[in-house]
Amino acid sequence: MVRTPLTPEERERGERLGRLLREARASTGRSMLDVATCSGLSAETLRKIETGRAPTPAFFTVAALAATLGLSLDDLLQRCALLPVEEAA
């Protein structure tokens, strides 16, 4: 099965999600390893999500990270809504 390439908007949304998760983790003072372990993920998976290299993590992955970091899924949904990305001229 071939996966459809992500649109620029989807890639940007993944980067935004990663940034929000990284900022939330930093604000708690928790390490990447601690958050990953508590969420049932590897530190490498969390690193990929935080850096936008894994822009479409599974719902249950995002839910586990949100629970670990004390984030609202509703808030994440609103802050990660698809936004138009202007193409370089």
Rank of each mutant, 00 (worst) to 15 (best):
A64T: 02
S39D: 08
L71W: 05
L65R: 00
T56Y: 01
L73C: 04
K48I: 03
R53E: 15
A54G: 06
L73F: 02
A43I: 03
L65S: 04
T37A: 13
V62M: 05
L71N: 01
A63T: 08
S72N: 06
L41R: 10
L65T: 02
D75E: 12
L46V: 10
T51Y: 03
G70M: 01
G40T: 09
G52F: 11
T61V: 15
R47G: 11
A58S: 11
A66F: 04
A63M: 11
T37P: 00
S42Q: 12
P57T: 08
T56Q: 15
S72G: 01
L69F: 04
G52E: 13
G70A: 00
A66G: 02
L46A: 09
P57H: 08
A64Q: 02
L65D: 00
A58C: 02
A58L: 12
L65H: 03
A66Y: 03
L71Q: 08
F60I: 03
G70H: 09
A54F: 14
T51S: 15
S72M: 04
G70W: 10
L65M: 08
A67F: 04
C38F: 05
T68E: 14
D75P: 00
D74P: 00
A43W: 01
T51C: 11
E44Q: 15
A67C: 02
C38K: 13
D75G: 00
L41S: 11
A43D: 11
A64F: 02
F60Q: 08
F60K: 03
T68M: 07
F60Y: 07
D74G: 06
T51P: 02
T45W: 04
P55M: 14
A67R: 12
C38E: 15
T51R: 14
S39C: 07
G40Q: 11
E44P: 01
D74K: 06
D75N: 02
T68H: 06
G70Y: 07
I49R: 02
A66D: 05
D75H: 03
C38G: 13
S72E: 05
D74I: 04
K48A: 15
L65V: 01
L71C: 05
G70D: 09
L69W: 06
T56G: 04
C38S: 13
L46H: 10
L69G: 04
L73A: 00
P57C: 08
T37F: 12
E50S: 11
T61H: 05
